[in-house]
Write a protein that binds this DNA or RNA. Structure first.
Lengths: 367, 367
DNA sequence: ATAATTTCCGTGAACGTTCACGAACTTGTA
DNA sequence: TACAAGTTCGTGAACGTTCACGGAAATTAT
């Protein structure tokens, strides 16, 4: 502008000098190219009704000015592309990536964007995650670990699909038939001849549990059951009681290393244990280590059944028998449920639509 | 609408009848509550200058109408909250979640949102992923597997941080010192007394390779090296040549199962192999399986070194020695680099700032 | 009682884009 | 030449929110 030389805006436009280089707008491009807003729009969006030469000139001008259309202005006038929030407690836990991958894939197929929040590492809760996502998304899918009502309140009318917890007032929910899983596992172990069973539960309450129960009723067996606080754990305790089989229960933080230690103690207290079911495959990996530590052969001396069926199981030694969940299928169920909610074939305001999925026993070496 | 009763909007507002229930705006709320736009804004955003009673009344009205402020209108007037795109080839590969988790955590700390794209499953490329993300984000971090220039062109002035490939015209890049990694691994194996080494490379070119070379120069050893196409593979081939050590190279698709098969063939062709380095830990798991299949003891008969240091390695039997990368640290580096680019302390237009990280040998049982 | 604050609330403007429409220019045809 | 039809481009309006400012009402001070 102030220079007398002719070649203004040579290559870089703003950026080098002065302040933070105020963002170029469509008007800047229009002015620089000697056309109107609408022509710039036509050039940038591959619309008809513009001469090829003009289009190229405008595009070049836009490039030189570093022009990027404001997604806000565009969204405001065109109506939102839907974007869904995905709340995950811990991507580091191999259970979740498989699920998340599926959600992202199917959401992308529908033209949605996925805003991901991996809230566990910051020590946040599921509700806080929803709070963080809320202003940015049109819907949320998530493993919140409870408080579905509160989360739905934050989202207002926008649909919320929660997993592995009662839907409550949430628009939709996907749960798992743990009673069926427990029955399947226990029957398999019994058929195998196991008589001294144990279950390793995860420590830390999952807020999905209906009541933080101490199982005040008749103790189903000799094992300690007081610590059982997850819904999975309750299902196994009840399943064992129903089947009239002894079940020792230990509780461990959700990691292989922790499960290894807990299992060592369990084996000290119950040396005759000959069958163990574990909260999930990751912890089962630690259980296998502990059994190896103690010199026991798997499955000869003690059988092990994991849960969830993550790919890791196949790589362990021995390969892990597990109550598998097709995590891509879980993701598909969540996305399709949300799709129904969004397109209105399902009513978000109505009572939460619940979908129940079942684990399937995958026999490998460990049991 | 058709009813004569007076109680309009009782509890649910729109939604039940008619069409897709046009979205409620701030003006609807203002009218329903008998106040102005600005008062609604004040009520919804916890701003001062409003009576508590009014605030509650407005909030209740908003709730009843299912009002959710438009993120586009808000963004337009307030200036963008920055949101970054995260392009990941395959969340199912345990390498990436650890990285992604770190990125999400640190981005959230900065108040950014993360739009995730897991582009591999759809058969898309990194560039297509960037294309998909571009209209929605202010910057991109990603493993693109090449074509950084093209991706940067799509983003215009918006910063792009690429990983594990030359930055090219991208604003920033993070690469790994594979020459150092190769040297470390080979030296360790030699010191261990291994004499017949092998390297299992990943099939499929990573476009980051400077030239799709057939290594036309003098063959560094007896092993077949023609298939080496990844930068990692080249580093190992060169490292072996420099150290004057024989190195057989096999190529396998990126999965444990595939690596298992390839390793079986390798062992048939080179039965004397007593040390194997693998492209990554996931494939190394398959290599361990193959060695077990062949009746070889690890590390007594053959040592194995993996690469990248994912948590899986500790759970294998034997536990995997690996050239570990602190993936959370990689995420941190990417985010901090991007932060510099965004806040302007680094110049996005300038030549890409490259950062080189090093693998560290973590000794466990397998070597 | 009047003035000086303070509290509360409303109105014009602006953010950057696309849509709907119309004007100007070009080409083809009688 | 004149008219129709097509091509290319520009202008007002609208999307829904917040900001800056100003006015009215309620409260306190003089």
């Amino acid at each position: 502008m102030t220079t007398s030389s002719g070649d203004a805006s040579s290559g870089l436009g703003p950026g080098a000098p002065g302040g933070p280089a105020k963002r170029a707008t469509i008007l800047d491009v229009a002015a620089a190219a000697g056309v109107s807003r609408q022509t710039v729009t036509r050039a940038m969006n591959a619309m008809p009704g513009i001469r090829q030469e003009t289009r190229e000139r405008v595009q070049e001008t836009a490039r030189q000015l570093g022009y990027t259309p404001s997604r806000f202005a565009k969204g405001l006038v065109q109506g939102a592309r839907t974007s869904v929030g995905l709340a995950i407690p811990d991507l580091t836990n191999p259970y979740y990536p498989a699920f998340a991958s599926s959600v992202v894939e199917l959401a992308t197929q529908r033209g949605w964007h996925v805003v991901m929040d991996d809230y566990g590492h910051g020590g946040a809760t599921g509700v806080e995650s929803v709070q963080h996502l809320a202003p940015q998304v049109d819907a949320v899918i998530g493993y919140l670990g409870g408080a579905a009502d509160e989360a739905q309140a934050i989202l207002g009318r926008r649909p919320l699909v929660v997993l592995d917890q009662p839907a409550g007032s949430a628009s939709g929910g996907i749960t798992f038939d743990y009673a069926h899983a427990a029955r399947t596992a226990l029957e398999h172990l019994q058929a195998r001849g196991c008589r001294q069973l144990a279950y390793i539960d995860r420590a830390g309450t999952d807020h999905g549990a209906p009541e933080p129960v101490h199982d005040g009723g008749p103790r189903p067996g000799p094992g300690p059951v007081q610590g059982v606080v997850t819904v999975r754990g309750q299902a196994f305790a009840r399943g064992a009681a129903a089947a009239g089989v002894a079940l020792a229960v230990s509780v461990s933080p959700e990691s292989a290393a922790a499960a290894r230690q807990v299992t060592r103690r369990l084996l000290d207290e119950h040396p005759g244990t000959d069958g163990i079911v574990v909260f999930n495959d990751l912890m089962a990996a630690g259980v296998l280590k502990a059994l190896a530590d103690s010199g026991r052969a798997v499955p000869a001396d003690c059988a092990v059944i994991g849960m969830d069926g993550i790919p890791l199981g196949e790589l362990l030694t021995p390969e892990l028998t597990t109550l598998a969940l097709d995590l891509r299928e879980v993701g598909r169920a969540a996305v399709e449920l949300l799709d129904g909610l969004l397109t209105g074939s399902l009513n978000p305001a109505g009572p939460g639509t619940e979908l129940v999925l079942r684990h399937q026993l995958v026999l490998r070496q460990s049991a």
